[in-house]
Amino acid sequence: MPLTKTVTVPPGNPEPTLHLPIIKMVVVVNDLNIAQTADDMAQLPPIVDRQVVWFQNGLPANYQAEFGVPDLATAVAFSLSPENNVGDVVRQGEIVDDVRMEEAYTAAGL
């Protein structure tokens, strides 16, 4: 399925998406399935829009400092609130199904 709500980096520019006052899912591993699940769960979201930024080569250093994701080495994706606070971190070893991805998106709305 095409990733219709995802900015893939590279070659895409993550900046515009990351600065939108919406819920974002940042995928930090080179795993299409996870990016696909994130994109799926960004389709027709309730209340506030959702977008995905997929860093295929991992999270760049400048964003690491900006978002301060705890224990980034074990993270596969994390959600950002409209104010860019980390909502939830999906870790390696977790079952990343639709429910888990939804949970991560939802946590960013708190």
Binding site: L20, P21, I22, I23, L44, P45, P46, I47, V48, D49, R50, P82, T106, A107, A108, G109, L110
Partner: peptide, 19 residues
């Protein structure tokens, strides 16, 4: 639940309650 908007500010409270 209502259709999403591109700006969270207007719906922050209902987003929080929903979440």
């Amino acid at each position: 639940i209502k259709p999403a908007t591109a700006n969270a500010a207007a719906n922050r409270d209902s987003l929080r309650a929903y979440s």
